[in-house]
Design a protein around this nucleic acid. Structure first.
Lengths: 343, 343
DNA sequence: CCTCCTCGGTATATCGATTAACCAATCCGT
DNA sequence: ACGGATTGGTTAATCGATATACCGAGGAGG
């Protein structure tokens, strides 16, 4: 009951190619000095045998696993980061795959669990680096990761003197400026903002952009409400806003999921979107395109951010990863959930 | 510029505990025979030093990586599997984490890429097993994986004589029966089904359930349309159905994303949901709860399926993984997008 | 013609655990 | 009190690659 022949080792390849195992290793790692002819011969032999270097063996000897970690905090019942998730991974994987790197994914529920997880990953030498998501204010993770000697990048505003470089969201909230202009241009003056949890960094950034944008045009926010990204909070915030004596004509939400809740809530209370109230989201989830009305939102190009983060992290792991720069910035996607202000 | 002391090895722990390295290994793997006292002493020493066994070293020697692979096919621009994704991973991770297993995630675009990826993962010895998603008709992967000697489980109908056991969807489509009964009970008689791509296994299963359910009650499907899960196809199918001389009063979609498209399409053409046409989805995506109208759908409990798949795979990897049985079955979640048939 | 360098490789120690084989005490039944 | 288990460990080989040090053969330079 042999389940196929045992996997070939580097020795078999060396034998077939008529060289030493060291030569085989060098051929695969582009190190040492080999003539082009023998390099070819070795590669062909390996191909014939279907051999690839054993990842554990290589990792043990070279102390490099060619694996990166992505830890996602997934608090129960939250409308937040989840959908990014898939796009983010797409962006990251797009950079890892061609270089033969793997992505080790972990889910945790809170920040303590996340920390002990990093400690274990580092102690076990399972990964070469980590992508940190959801930058918080006073985030403990950069210090932890540097203590552990694990290269990392943070998805969030690059903080010049942070222990860990940030990626992509330096212009975070930039799209919110466009949103404000868009709404002002449509004649809206009473504009409310439904924000996320205060401890998330992007919450602060977007909120400030919102307030600054209005102020620059000589207006003031109708209101700014914080939520925990839960369905209930989104609905409650929307109801509170709409119940005001002189309710807002436009509501901007910190993400698309809450915006969808908001549209549903408005519609259920008999209002038309956008005739009575305009709604704007943030994230550009695919679903926004299929809704009625189609959701106006901000595309923050998570996929590119993920790719840039991966490139930066690879570079920090000593890989030659091209340009770590991020191309693209958040941009308004105007669709049907926004329209001229009533009256 | 020392970035902390080098990581401790098993030798250091052995020295501190005053035993041999073999004893340390045994203490961590619950093998061999050690007195409870020394076991404690070793564990304490390890804790003090912050030591965990090096994953690469352990993997090399024991030929077990304690890592499983999940490969997700992510065709561009598809409304399909994506959202499962996050829930599926949650379910899998919930079983892996407590056992110290990791999940290696890869994204591919087509089935060939997926195959060569498995070959590389096997050749490199990077994983102990794999979770296969999206069972297809005449799926080449079970044969491939067995040839590679890589344990695997398939998310899909358990096929008794398949090379790879299936998980969770033996009752796949079971929820569709409930859907049909629900709609019939509401007085609908002209019921259409918008299916997924024919090459996916669950498409066939659900379609059959749909047709059988109607037939059992003495009715016939209004129509069954196949799509490729794209937005365009979902919209086109919906428009075609609604343009019929005597259009259906209810449309059942193979997933929630298409159902949302369908609702949007119907609403844009001036129809009310559910007053003029009822809509049913499949998946129970969170978003369905926030929409207006709230989406009637089928909860197939992807998370439990993921967990069961993980348990089964762990068992096939020689782990003691408890019961691989799946608790829970797909169930109808009746909400507001379905209502009494018009007239 | 001798020396020195470069080219193209090879021999071997090593990464850090696991595991099979082995062994010294202690225990137990008769 | 003695032979055979049992307990509680140890010794040493090994997993499969990588990397450092080394080495022989030509070629160049003087």
């Amino acid at each position: 009951m042999e389940s196929g022949r045992a996997r070939p080792t580097i020795k078999a390849v060396a034998a077939v190619a008529g060289v030493s195992t060291a030569a085989v290793s060098q051929a695969f790692n582009n190190k040492g000095r080999l003539s082009e002819a023998t390099r070819r011969r070795i590669l062909d032999a390996a191909m014939d045998l279907g051999w690839s270097p054993s990842a554990p063996a290589a990792a043990l000897r070279s102390a490099r696993t060619r694996t990166l970690a992505l830890v996602v905090r997934r608090p129960t019942d939250v409308l937040g980061a989840d959908p990014h998730f898939s796009e983010l991974i797409t962006g990251i994987e797009g950079e890892l795959a061609p270089r033969g790197y793997g992505l080790l994914l972990h889910l945790v529920t809170d920040v303590d669990e996340e920390s002990t997880l990093y400690e274990r990953l580092a102690a076990e030498g399972r990964v070469d680096g980590a992508v940190l998501t959801d930058a918080r204010t006073d985030d403990p993770r950069p210090a932890l990761l540097t203590r552990l000697g694990l290269p990392a990048v943070m998805l969030g505003a690059p903080d010049p003197d942070a222990a860990v470089p940030g990626v992509g969201l330096g212009h975070q909230g930039a799209g919110v400026g466009e949103v404000v202009d868009h709404l002002l241009g449509l004649g809206h003056r009473r504009i409310a903002y439904v924000a996320g949890p205060a401890e998330l960094q992007h919450t602060r950034l977007r909120r400030r952009r919102f307030e600054d944008g209005l102020r620059a045009a000589g207006h003031r926010p109708f209101a700014v409400l914080h939520t925990d990204f839960s369905e209930g909070a989104a609905i409650a915030a929307t109801e509170a806003l709409l119940a005001a004596a002189d309710p807002p004509t436009a509501i901007v939400y910190a993400n698309d999921s809450m915006a969808v809740c908001g549209i549903g809530t408005a519609q259920r209370s008999g209002l038309r979107v956008p005739a009575d109230v305009s709604v704007v989201g943030y994230d550009n989830l695919p679903i926004g395109r299929w809704l009625h009305p189609r959701l106006t939102t901000v595309d923050q190009q998570v996929q590119q951010v993920g790719a840039a983060a991966a490139r930066l992290l690879l570079a920090r792991c000593g890989e030659d990863a091209g340009d770590a720069r991020l191309d693209g910035r958040p941009r308004l996607v105007a669709r049907d959930s926004t329209g001229p202000a009533p009256h």
